[in-house]
Each structure stands twice: as C-alpha cells, then as structure tokens.
Amino acid sequence: MENKEVIEPEILKQVAKILKVPVQAIKNFSEEAAVNIISNTFSDESVAYTEYYKYTINPFEKWVDAMDKNEQLFKELLKSEREKIELPEKLLNEKKGNK
C-alpha cells in the first residue's frame, strides 16, 4: 500500500477502521505537519501524559512494601514450622495416652 499512488476506497475504510481514525484523517495526513507538531510540543511537556509518565519511585515506600511482604512470608514460614513441631508432639502424646 505504501508504494501505491491511489488506495482503493474499501481498503482505506478497512485501514481507518483498524486504526480507529476517520478516513479523512488518512486522506489529509501530512507527514510534514505531523513532524512539525511533534517537534514543537515534545520539549514543552505538552505531550499526552500516561499513568506512569514522570513517575517518581520513593525508595522508602518500596522498602516498607518489601518489609510487609517479608513479614507475611516470615509469619507463614513460622506457622509451618510450628505445625511441624506440633505434629510429632501430638503423636507422642497420643502414644503416651494409649499406654
């Protein structure tokens, strides 16, 4: 399509639908105008912001989050170890009770 002088209207409609733009936007597209807009707006931060654009990571918050996750993991491991100790004790007590 890039090498064609004229694109069939049906193909143009399909491309516009896929790109979710009006057919007129494709017909009236000017590479020079697009480059001009990008070059004139990129440095003054008037580009569209996304959720994580200029996101600042707070190391302390990351550390606290990691500590919270480690604390939960430690609690789960401790519970597991206690269960491992309690099981033989329980079996031993049951044997003592049967004698």
Results as ranks from 00 to 15, higher is better:
residue 55 Y to H: 14
residue 58 N to P: 02
residue 37 I to F: 13
residue 48 A to Q: 15
residue 21 V to Y: 01
residue 74 F to D: 02
residue 45 E to N: 14
residue 31 E to S: 06
residue 61 E to I: 04
residue 21 V to L: 08
residue 75 K to V: 02
residue 21 V to E: 03
residue 68 D to P: 00
residue 47 V to K: 05
residue 55 Y to L: 12
residue 37 I to C: 05
residue 53 Y to W: 02
residue 23 V to K: 15
residue 78 L to R: 03
residue 28 N to V: 00
residue 43 S to W: 07
residue 45 E to G: 14
residue 46 S to G: 09
residue 55 Y to E: 05
residue 46 S to L: 10
residue 30 S to R: 08
residue 52 Y to Q: 09
residue 59 P to I: 01
residue 31 E to C: 07
residue 62 K to W: 01
residue 55 Y to T: 06
residue 65 D to M: 01
residue 68 D to E: 14
residue 55 Y to N: 09
residue 70 N to R: 11
residue 72 Q to L: 08
residue 36 N to G: 07
residue 52 Y to S: 10
residue 80 S to D: 09
residue 50 T to S: 10
residue 38 I to M: 10
residue 36 N to T: 15
residue 46 S to T: 11
residue 20 K to N: 13
residue 65 D to T: 06
residue 70 N to S: 05
residue 72 Q to H: 03
residue 51 E to R: 14
residue 30 S to F: 02
residue 20 K to P: 01
residue 30 S to L: 05
residue 62 K to L: 12
residue 25 A to D: 08
residue 74 F to L: 12
residue 46 S to W: 01
residue 22 P to Y: 00
residue 37 I to P: 01
residue 63 W to P: 01
residue 49 Y to G: 14
residue 55 Y to I: 02
residue 66 A to C: 05
residue 78 L to A: 14
residue 78 L to I: 01
residue 73 L to C: 05
residue 59 P to R: 04
residue 59 P to C: 05
residue 79 K to D: 07
residue 61 E to K: 15
residue 42 F to K: 15
residue 76 E to D: 12
residue 72 Q to M: 04
residue 64 V to A: 12
residue 50 T to F: 08
residue 80 S to Q: 12
residue 32 E to P: 01
residue 74 F to S: 09
residue 64 V to D: 04
residue 58 N to S: 08
residue 62 K to Q: 13
residue 44 D to R: 11
residue 45 E to D: 07
residue 25 A to T: 09
residue 40 N to T: 14
residue 24 Q to F: 00
residue 48 A to K: 15
residue 42 F to L: 14
residue 34 A to I: 00
residue 38 I to A: 11
residue 62 K to Y: 01
residue 48 A to F: 08
residue 26 I to P: 06
residue 38 I to C: 06
residue 38 I to R: 10
residue 23 V to P: 02
residue 37 I to E: 11
residue 50 T to Y: 07
residue 63 W to D: 03
residue 39 S to A: 09
residue 39 S to I: 09
residue 75 K to W: 05
residue 26 I to K: 08
residue 33 A to L: 13
residue 50 T to G: 13
residue 40 N to E: 15
residue 63 W to Q: 15
residue 69 K to R: 12
residue 63 W to G: 03
residue 80 S to P: 00
residue 35 V to G: 01
residue 19 L to M: 11
residue 45 E to R: 12
residue 54 K to D: 15
residue 66 A to D: 10
residue 71 E to G: 00
residue 44 D to M: 04
residue 51 E to H: 08
residue 51 E to T: 14
residue 76 E to L: 11
residue 47 V to E: 13
residue 19 L to F: 03
residue 29 F to Y: 13
residue 39 S to H: 03
residue 65 D to Q: 10
residue 70 N to V: 01
residue 69 K to I: 06
